[in-house]
Lab assay of single mutants.
Amino acid sequence: SKDTIRINGIDIDVKDLHEEWKRLVEEALKRGDEELAIELLERALKE
């Protein structure tokens, strides 16, 4: 798994994120759902 995830052309540092969150965000991006990916990231970062 990578340490960054690219959303809207912005590389976001996710190395401190739990693997499960990372996977969910990557799944959302694979489906092209950037809005969901951002929402998941925000939730993950609050934890």
Rank of each mutant, 00 (worst) to 15 (best):
R43F: 13
I10L: 10
I7K: 01
K46F: 10
K46R: 13
K2P: 15
K15P: 04
L41N: 00
V14H: 02
A44S: 04
D3E: 11
G9F: 03
R43E: 14
E47N: 08
I7G: 01
G32V: 01
L36F: 09
L24H: 04
K30F: 13
R31T: 10
I38E: 07
G9R: 02
V25S: 00
L29Y: 05
E39D: 09
R23P: 03
D11P: 06
E34T: 14
E27G: 06
K15H: 12
L29C: 05
D3M: 01
N8Q: 08
D11A: 07
G32A: 04
D16W: 15
E35I: 12
I10K: 10
K2L: 15
I10N: 08
L41S: 01
N8E: 05
I5W: 02
G32W: 03
R43D: 06
I10Q: 11
E47Y: 07
E19L: 06
E19D: 13
E39H: 10
K2I: 13
K22E: 02
N8R: 05
I7W: 04
E34G: 06
K15C: 01
K22S: 04
K30E: 13
L24K: 11
R6K: 14
D3V: 06
D33W: 07
R31Q: 13
I7T: 01
I7Y: 04
R31K: 12
R43M: 15
L40M: 07
H18T: 15
E19P: 15
E42K: 10
E27C: 08
R31P: 00
K15G: 13
I12V: 11
I12E: 01
R23Y: 11
D33G: 03
E42T: 08
E20M: 12
E47P: 06
E42H: 10
T4D: 03
V14S: 03
G9N: 05
L24C: 05
A44L: 07
L36C: 10
E35D: 12
H18P: 14
G32C: 03
L41Y: 09
G32N: 07
K2W: 14
K2D: 12
L29N: 01
D11K: 04
D33A: 06
E42Y: 07
L40D: 01
D16Y: 14
I10H: 09
D16F: 13
L24Y: 05
L41E: 00
A28N: 00
L17M: 08
H18C: 09
E27Q: 10
V25T: 01
K22C: 03
E19N: 09
V25K: 00
T4M: 07
E27A: 11
L41R: 01
D13F: 09
W21N: 04
D3C: 05
E34W: 06
R43K: 13
L24Q: 10
E47R: 00
D3Q: 05
L36R: 08
E20C: 15
A37V: 06
R6L: 09
H18L: 12
W21M: 09
V14K: 02
E19C: 04
D3G: 05
I10F: 07
V25W: 03
R43C: 09
L45F: 15
L17Y: 04
E35S: 13
L24A: 11
G9A: 02
R6I: 10
I12D: 00
E26L: 15
A44I: 04
W21F: 09
G32M: 05
E19S: 12
L41G: 01
K15F: 08
H18R: 13
L24S: 04
I12T: 04
D33K: 05
D11Y: 07
D13P: 06
L36N: 05
E26R: 15
A37E: 00
I12K: 03
T4A: 05
H18W: 06
E35L: 14
T4V: 13
D11F: 05
E20I: 13
R31H: 12
W21S: 06
R43H: 13
A44H: 05
A44Q: 03
I7Q: 02
I38F: 14
N8I: 01
E27Y: 05
G9H: 04
K46P: 03
E20L: 09
E39Q: 14
K2C: 05
A44W: 13
I10W: 06
L41Q: 00
L45R: 13
R43P: 01
L24N: 03
E39R: 13
L17K: 01
I38V: 10
R23A: 12
D16I: 07
N8S: 05
K46I: 11
T4L: 06
L40K: 00
L41D: 00
R43I: 14
S1K: 10
E47W: 05
L29Q: 02
E39M: 14
K46Y: 09
L36G: 10
I38Q: 11
V25H: 00
E34I: 13
E20S: 14
L41V: 08
A44D: 01
V25R: 00
D11W: 07
I12C: 03
L41A: 04
K30N: 13
I5S: 01
A37C: 02
E42I: 07
A28Q: 01
R6W: 08
E27P: 00
L24G: 03
K30M: 12
I10G: 03
W21K: 03
V14T: 06
H18A: 15
D13W: 10
E39I: 14
R6P: 04
E39W: 09
I7A: 02
D33Y: 06
T4S: 08
T4I: 14
A37I: 04
R23T: 12
T4P: 07
I5A: 01
L41W: 06
E26D: 09
A28H: 03
E34M: 12
R23L: 10
R23C: 04
L17N: 01
S1F: 12
E20A: 12
G32P: 01
W21Q: 09
D11V: 09
I12P: 00
A37L: 06
R6N: 14
K15R: 14
L36T: 08
E39F: 10
S1A: 11
G32F: 05
R23D: 06
L45E: 08
K22P: 01
K15Q: 10
I12S: 01
K15D: 06
K46G: 12
I12M: 07
H18Q: 11
E35A: 14
K2Q: 15
A37R: 00
R6M: 14
W21C: 08
V25C: 02
D33Q: 09
H18D: 14
W21L: 11
D16E: 11
E26M: 15
L40A: 02
L29P: 00
E39P: 00
L45S: 08
A28Y: 05
I5D: 02
L45T: 07
R6A: 08
R31I: 12
K30H: 12
E27M: 09
R31A: 15
I10E: 10
I7H: 03
D3K: 03
L40W: 05
K30A: 15
A44R: 01
